[in-house]
Amino acid sequence: MNIFRLAGDMTHLISVLVLLLKIYATKSCSGISLKTQELYAMVFLARYLDLFSDFISLYNTVMKLVFIGSSLAIVWCMRYHRVVRRSYDRELDTFRYWILVGACFTLALVLHEKFSFQEVFWAFSIYLEAVAILPQLVLLQRSGNVDNLTGQYVFFLGAYRAFYILNWIYRYLTEPRFTRWISCVSGLVQTALYADFFYYYFISWKNNAKLQLPA
């Protein structure tokens, strides 16, 4: 564990807590893409298949349970909670994400570290996470103004993988046999997808204005 990875995990945890806060405090999920939440639930379920088979550390196990639990809870909330579900922007959240799921799974069948069930699903989760934010970014552009908590949620979600890139650089420099090309390349693509959001987020923060994404 290094400071970059810890910062990344904490930032990721904060993004989840901000989203939970928004939904429970405002009893609303307006501006949140259910499709991105469902993609993230798939990412965690596919990535943490080793949850019960490989014990790495208490921290690792606890965080995996937190991420799986929170993503499923948010999907459940947005689909079935009788108050929250009413504020879901159903007509704006129309990204056909099964194309992304199919493409990522196909890529994982071709490009993986080892051809085993667990490794293919792990590579699938890495590729899927890189594009999981797309429905959310499309929804933000369509819904115009973005409320603060939603903007902060997306910001922390994007920042966490940037910390992971620093972690991979650090591990590459300090650990002799460390190579994680699948994670690194996907992590770079994932962070790059946030580039324009980070730009408009910075502008809104600098001008102390509402976050506006151009349509």
């Binding site: 490989d54 991420f67 570290e113």
Partner: peptide, 10 residues
Amino acid sequence: AKTDSAKDEL
């Protein structure tokens, strides 16, 4: 201990 190729990251 797990080799470093293990998935020790989240």
